[in-house]
Amino acid sequence: MPTDNSFATIDQAAWEDLVARFDGRMWAVARAFGLSAADAADAVQGAWLRLVENADAIRDPGRIGAWLVTTTRREAARLSRRARGEVAADLDVPDTALPDPTAAVVDADFGRQVWRRLDLLGEPCRSLIRLYVLHPEARYAQIAVRLDLPVGSIGPTRARCMARLRALVEEEAR
């Protein structure tokens, strides 16, 4: 990959290296929005297309990974809003100079650390998050049956459990 301001001249091999390094992270972020496989594929492809159309604006190749993850999140959020019938601006692209620095946590090694933190949570958080993470297509009704919880409580409980997990991870990072 180029190390100076020459990202616009990237060759096919360097591009494929970028794909190999980041497409798994981009996919995981798109799916984390609850998108179907087809919509997640569109969100990921959209982020790569944004990179192509913004190649001349990339001044720091070291930030491309964070920029791709940030752009995928925006494309996924837009598709998610549209799937819910909401109006979604379709041309919003993150500033090439200001990718979200927290995107760096989208990483398998970090994920394994979070799994260890998850074990510190009690039930039903531990089982609920485990089900939610390992079965992306699972509906709240299915999770409710598995955990013997009211289906109406799954969404709020999941949000509360994720907030607790996030707090644990952030506390660890301080």
Binding site: A41, A103, V106, D107, V114, W115, Y132, R166
Partner: peptide, 27 residues
């Protein structure tokens, strides 16, 4: 830290829901 990033990291850490080859080929 965004919840979507946390969830994505958890899935990657577990090897769950890997990126389909068709998505990589399209990229």
């Amino acid at each position: 830290m965004r919840e979507e990033y946390l969830l994505a990291a958890l899935r990657m850490g577990a090897g769950a829901d890997p990126v389909p080859e068709g998505v990589s080929a399209a990229a």
